[in-house]
């Protein structure tokens, strides 16, 4: 019995297909979801999501979000979801460097909102890089 996996962002439905299992980066640690899982709602932190479909593993980078699990479906609400193959490592590297240098020029306390936004950008970029690099070493 497969699980219906759906990944949606505010911009689009990124993924919608039947999969055998999902491993996601929950705030409490990595979590594997198999069919007939008990109904669950939990939070997601930026990281790598792996899904198994007919013996093949696919990796995706996901941002902060929420997960809703029922016995037959897993729905993920996140602000970012990118297929590992679509990650442009160079662009992400540049974004990361840009965010880090921006963080240095920002003084904490003065521009808290910008600091927070930059930190979130760094987390997302790091998550993407992590997914990309890990896949290459295999």
């Amino acid at each position: 019995m497969p699980i219906q996996l759906e990944i949606v962002t505010p911009e689009a439905r990124i993924y919608s297909d039947e999969v055998d299992s999902v491993v996601l980066p929950g705030t409490e640690g990595e979590m594997g979801i198999l069919p007939a899982h008990a109904p669950l709602v939990t939070t997601l932190k930026p990281g790598e999501l792996r899904l198994m479909k007919s013996g093949k593993e696919t990796s995706m980078a996901v941002g902060e979000g929420l997960v809703e699990v029922t016995g037959t479906t897993t729905r993920i609400l996140t602000d970012m979801a990118i297929h590992a193959d679509d990650i442009d490592e160079k662009a992400v590297d540049e974004a990361l460097a840009r965010a880090k240098s921006a963080l240095e020029t920002l003084k904490p306390g003065e521009n808290d909102e910008e600091v927070a936004a930059t930190m979130a950008a760094i987390q997302r970029a790091t998550a993407q890089l992590h997914v990309k690099r890990r896949r290459r070493t295999i």
Binding site: T27, E28, A38, V41, T42, E64, D79
Partner: peptide, 23 residues
């Protein structure tokens, strides 16, 4: 369905609200 909340309902709620506002 009767969801289980992890870590707890209140904490999930606190995490959902900012995202709800942004959305």
């Amino acid at each position: 369905p009767d969801y289980e909340f992890e870590p707890s309902a209140n904490e999930v709620f606190a995490a959902v609200l900012p995202q709800y506002v942004n959305g």
